[in-house]
Computed example of a mutant assay.
Amino acid sequence: MVRIRMKSLGRRHRPFYRICAMDARTPRDGRAIEELGHYDPMSRNPETQTVLNADRIRYWLSVGAQPSDKVAAILRRHKVTKPAPGEPWELPKPPAAETPAAAPAPAAEAPAAPTAS
């Protein structure tokens, strides 16, 4: 299972986080599958405080990645996706293609009637 989590960087009293797609079994600051943006809570400029790659985040959500609670709040704040309350973060799956009903096997042709000569 893939989770979208914040990887802690920075130093003491100066936090900085990378928003990453990570395997759920990896540690918090472990190896990431892909970096999707960053969050700098100490930045005074709102435009540089959070930088997100929205297209890649939507992709990871569409394949079943689940954001952590903090990342979900950031995504809601930046309107990357906005699920209804109580709905999962996964994007709706397209309807399954209908399989055509099994066509009956062609009937064996009856042998031609013998002709009188």
Rank of each mutant, 00 (worst) to 15 (best):
N45D: 15
P67F: 11
A73M: 10
P46C: 04
D29G: 09
G30D: 07
S43E: 15
D69H: 13
T50S: 08
S62K: 06
P41K: 05
L75H: 02
A32V: 00
P85G: 07
E34T: 06
E87G: 00
H78P: 00
E87L: 04
G86D: 04
R77E: 14
H78K: 07
Y59L: 12
Q66G: 06
R28N: 02
E90D: 01
W89T: 01
Y39K: 02
T81Q: 05
A54M: 01
I33G: 01
N45E: 13
P85M: 05
T48Y: 02
S62R: 09
P92M: 02
R28C: 06
E34C: 06
E47C: 05
G30H: 10
E47S: 14
P85C: 04
P27R: 13
N53Q: 13
R58L: 14
R56G: 08
E34V: 05
L36V: 08
K82N: 15
A72T: 08
H38T: 03
L91R: 07
P46S: 02
E87Q: 11
I57G: 09
W60N: 05
P41H: 07
R31D: 10
M42D: 12
R44P: 08
D40H: 12
G37W: 07
K82E: 12
M42K: 13
T50G: 02
E47D: 14
N53Y: 07
A65P: 14
E34L: 09
A84S: 10
P88F: 01
E87R: 12
P83N: 07
R58M: 08
I74T: 04
R31I: 12
V80K: 02
P85Q: 10
Y39P: 08
A65L: 09
K70C: 03
P88K: 09
E47L: 12
N53R: 13
E47N: 12
V71G: 09
P85R: 13
L75A: 04
S68C: 04
S43A: 15
R44G: 14
Y59C: 09
I74K: 04
V80E: 01
P92I: 02
E47A: 15
A84P: 03
A54L: 00
D55P: 00
D29N: 15
I74R: 06
P88N: 10
R44A: 10
P27A: 08
A84T: 09
A32Y: 13
R56L: 11
S43H: 06
E47K: 14
V71N: 07
T50W: 00
G86K: 08
H78Y: 15
E34H: 11
Y39C: 05
V80G: 05
R58S: 05
A73E: 15
T48F: 03
R31M: 06
Y59P: 00
K82G: 06
K79G: 04
W60G: 04
I33C: 00
P88G: 12
M42L: 13
L75V: 04
I74E: 02
A32T: 04
L52I: 07
I33R: 14
Y59G: 10
L36G: 07
V80I: 15
R76Q: 07
H38M: 04
L75E: 01
Y59W: 14
L91T: 03
K79H: 13
K82C: 08
R56D: 12
V80F: 07
M42E: 12
I57S: 08
V80Y: 02
D55T: 10
P85Y: 06
A73G: 14
R58V: 07
T81C: 11
Y39T: 02
A54W: 00
A32P: 01
W60M: 11
V63R: 11
R31G: 12
